[in-house]
Design a protein around this nucleic acid. Sequence first.
DNA 1: CGCAGCCTTGACCATTATCAACGCTGGTGG
DNA 2: CCACCAGCGTTGATAATGGTCAAGGCTGCG
Lengths: 248, 248
Amino acid sequence: MNAVVIQLRPPTSDCGVRRRETACSGCGARAFSVCAGLPDADLSRLDALAETVRFAPGEVLVREGDPATRLFNLTAGTVRVFKLLPDGRRQIVGFLFAGDFLGLATEATYAFSAEAIEPTVACRFNRAAYQDLIDDSPALGRALLERARHELAAAQNQMLLLGRKTAQERIASFLLDLAERDPMRAHAPNALHLPMTRADMADYLGLTIETVSRTLTRLKTSGAIRMTSLSDLVVSDPRRLRDIAEGL
Amino acid sequence: MNAVVIQLRPPTSDCGVRRRETACSGCGARAFSVCAGLPDADLSRLDALAETVRFAPGEVLVREGDPATRLFNLTAGTVRVFKLLPDGRRQIVGFLFAGDFLGLATEATYAFSAEAIEPTVACRFNRAAYQDLIDDSPALGRALLERARHELAAAQNQMLLLGRKTAQERIASFLLDLAERDPMRAHAPNALHLPMTRADMADYLGLTIETVSRTLTRLKTSGAIRMTSLSDLVVSDPRRLRDIAEGL
DNA sequence: CGCAGCCTTGACCATTATCAACGCTGGTGG
DNA sequence: CCACCAGCGTTGATAATGGTCAAGGCTGCG
């Protein structure tokens, strides 16, 4: 698995900064990469700041409460970003994939933790240096603001999901969202890979493992989706799934 | 009521842009005002773009799905920002007060609706012109990015609340958050005004009106809070309320 | 081949939603 | 000035969605 990832994305001298707009060799561009469209001068300065780091599944990228000294740009893999309550209840606030930026919501200390789910490669930046570069590169500042807008809109959608949708609507919405972001989607339009466990999905959707499992079974039985393995599925009836997601 | 508001915040020739850092005459500064600390030159250019507008309770500032042509800076009042599902279920994604900015999460079209709760005064900007000004004023861009970071962190907290907290924890968290943002807090540390209805609270917290009401009664009975009217309360035991909010 | 971890399914339970009745309050008009 | 009404809030009884507890099955790896 790890070997495959490395095959798809060989270590790059520029830490992936220049390549960030494609998520996977041979498949289409990712729409919201922070660095897509930046002038070469800015890219070079980013390159100079970046250091490539690798994380095995379960490894910690940042820990809630720690001083926020680093930012990351993912070039491969999957990361879960989450918050914990004192008694251990966990809310995953997002999954990050290749091309995504980790640390936008950051102020003096990290307000979330982040762990690799799959073998992950990232460009790591010193936050202070990155901040200097933002202050100095209007294009980068603009790109980050644009990304922040997008993340904020996504967060609002997730609040709607968590506050007002049923279990079935949540799962359907999640699968559709994932289908839109999945770097593999260009290869097979309705095929979808789930890199995370049922527990991760549950903690992202405000449900329990059991409810996630039952609901997937129900969607399967109703013919909206078909599981090709525990972590792969085909959306056999996208229209229906979309209707379910919107509560229709 | 309206008269009182106008007394506290007379219409200003500069649309409130320069005054945005104080929420109410005589009380302390608000921490996260977008324009606080901007150079005078930028403030003047903002002034030139701004137009003062007033909204009565229930009036619409922006409607989900409309082309996003306007941004707002609130100088007085309270606004609810929300998203709807086709069947009418509503999720309030935030309440805005004096000093808050409306439109950060906006891309081509509004992804949310916004309505005044109380009589509200705002500076209205043309979005394209505002965008030009951002591109041209590093300080403004930085301030907006800072604000976006803060909003994103708040959104993640709300996801934790909606996905993993019990009804009682949600209400306690909500009251504490509100206490922190309430422009009146400088006047009486533990007094708190609720400008929104129970239905608004319910739609913000992913609960029903009845559960909000019952839970407030329970907090009241337990001695953590004391209601001085339907929309005013005193946090009589802040420590306890904090513990409840964190699930302790 | 066996084991550990993850997933599924079932039975039962609890929190919160729903439905319903009633009370308070503030505004209006007789 | 008082009575009425509409809208909002509270409380109670009941229901349902999703959670909890428990058992067993799959799967992938050593």
